[in-house]
Amino acid sequence: MPIGELCNREVVFARRTTTIVEAAQLMRRYHVGDLVVVDEVGGRRIPVGMLTDRDIVVEIIAKSLPVEGVTAGELMRPRLVSVPETAGVVATIQLMRAHGVRRIPVVDPEGGLAGIVSVDDLLDLLAEELTELAKVAPRGQASETRTRGD
């Protein structure tokens, strides 16, 4: 299954100039723990970084730094890892594991923001798949019993 079929297409995003207070308000309003930071290029949103609630807490709040004037662009993680819509689930999991990320933006062929996928999304999918797989053995036994009449 291509990750583009699984990802959440409604992504909460910020621009580099979004203040940390505005970013926190977006997270609160939309009940998310992260924002994809984007640049607008030719009418497309191009992901350039990620900003998490943890980034705000660890880098600003825990250090008792003032939040005024701090922007998403200054605080975001600049080494963005993204995945193309066409990537498979296993390849996406491997990429997330290799880079130690729990959320990953999904990009279209032109590099525009198409969605986001999280570890929780993947766990839900895998749980459904394992549940279906667990049903195979009992059904096979029932079929064999019907066929052989034992």
Rank of each mutant, 00 (worst) to 15 (best):
L125G: 05
D120R: 14
L35G: 01
V21A: 07
T52I: 02
G100Q: 13
V83K: 05
E5M: 12
L133S: 13
E22T: 05
I56W: 02
E59K: 14
V12S: 14
V38G: 01
M50P: 03
R79V: 09
I93Y: 03
G33L: 05
T92Q: 00
V119L: 12
V32E: 13
R102P: 06
A24E: 10
T145I: 13
L80G: 07
S64V: 11
E59I: 06
Y30H: 13
D120H: 14
V41Y: 10
V136Y: 10
I61V: 14
V41S: 09
L26N: 12
V58S: 12
T52S: 03
T147F: 14
E10C: 05
E129A: 13
S143W: 05
P84H: 13
V67S: 10
V101P: 09
N8C: 11
M50I: 04
V106S: 07
P105H: 01
V101E: 11
F13W: 15
H99L: 04
V89D: 11
R139V: 03
E132Q: 13
V67P: 03
A14W: 04
E144S: 13
V101F: 04
L123F: 07
G33F: 06
S118A: 10
L122D: 15
L122Y: 08
I56L: 01
G73V: 03
D121C: 03
R146F: 10
G115V: 05
P138F: 01
D34Y: 06
E85Y: 14
M96Q: 09
V107I: 10
I61P: 05
I46A: 05
D150S: 15
V41N: 11
A137P: 06
A62Q: 08
I3E: 11
V119P: 03
D55P: 08
A114G: 06
T18W: 00
E128T: 11
K135I: 00
V11E: 11
T131M: 12
P84R: 15
I56F: 01
